[in-house]
Amino acid sequence: MGQTSGHPYPYTDRADAGRVLAGALADYRGRKGLLVLGLPRGGVPVAAEVAGALDAALDVVLVRKIGHPRQPELAAGAVAEAAGERTAVWNDDVVRFWLASAPATGQAELDAVLSAESAELRRRAGLYRPNRPVQGIRGNTVIVVDDGLATGATMRAALAAVRNLEPQWLVAAAPMSCAPAGGITALADDVVIPWADSTLSAVGQAYRVFGQTGDAEVRALLRVE
């Protein structure tokens, strides 16, 4: 796992972070079939810098949090889509507690949240890939990029979705993490985080400028016409 880069922290913005991350990933440049997948929306500007520096194809892996039915800010899991296939990853402790506290309706309510988030994934897939085929993953080197890791749940869901599509080598990459990324290492062949275990309480604290990334910016970076 990458630990340091000599770069002064915090990052200026996502583009700056992407350039630093690209430097940490430089050994992957030139690999045949190299593909960089950004996590919309904030991970895509970082991924675009990485893809440009490594001369790699750029696409997205879509992830949505599955919120607790009564406490939406609490993640019961996440659902991800890559190359047209979806995978759900669950926070087992949260799910067990929820099903025990609402035995009659718990599963149906959880299924309803999953259905709604899956529908949002389909909407975003149509928005970001309206007229282009999905990139090939099977047998290739794939780098999954986000703008930072807080709990790591979103990255874990993305990696699980991509792993199901049988890449030859799977890399998890982010400019920073708020805490040790132990859960990530079990899902990826390599983990690259220049500012690992930053001890910050939120990803946004790693950036001087950390505005919202809109759909229009993501579409422009993906060159959607």
Rank of each mutant, 00 (worst) to 15 (best):
P167T: 09
A47Y: 05
A172N: 01
W98Y: 15
P72A: 07
V134W: 15
V63E: 02
A158I: 02
L187C: 07
R19N: 05
V145S: 09
A188E: 06
W98S: 13
L39P: 11
A88E: 15
W90F: 09
R156G: 04
Y28I: 02
A51M: 12
P180W: 12
P10W: 04
F97C: 15
D111Y: 13
L99P: 05
W90M: 04
L21R: 03
D27E: 15
P133T: 10
P45I: 02
G30L: 02
E225S: 15
G33P: 00
G30W: 00
A75T: 00
L74P: 06
E49C: 14
A26L: 04
V60H: 00
R156N: 11
V209H: 11
D147C: 03
Q135G: 12
Q135V: 09
V46K: 01
S177A: 13
D147W: 01
P133V: 08
V79Q: 01
W169R: 12
A173M: 04
A153D: 13
R129S: 06
S198Y: 09
A26I: 00
G23C: 06
L221R: 13
D59I: 02
R132D: 09
G38P: 04
L39D: 11
L37E: 11
D111S: 06
G152A: 01
G2E: 14
A104P: 08
G214Y: 13
P103C: 03
V144S: 02
G84Q: 02
G211Y: 01
R124L: 13
D13Q: 04
Q205T: 08
R123V: 09
D190A: 15
V50K: 00
E73W: 09
T105A: 14
A108L: 11
A15K: 11
A125G: 13
E120S: 07
R31G: 15
D16L: 06
V46P: 00
A17N: 05
A53I: 10
V79G: 02
E117W: 01
E117I: 03
E225P: 15
G204I: 00
L159D: 10
V36Y: 10
P69G: 06
Q135P: 02
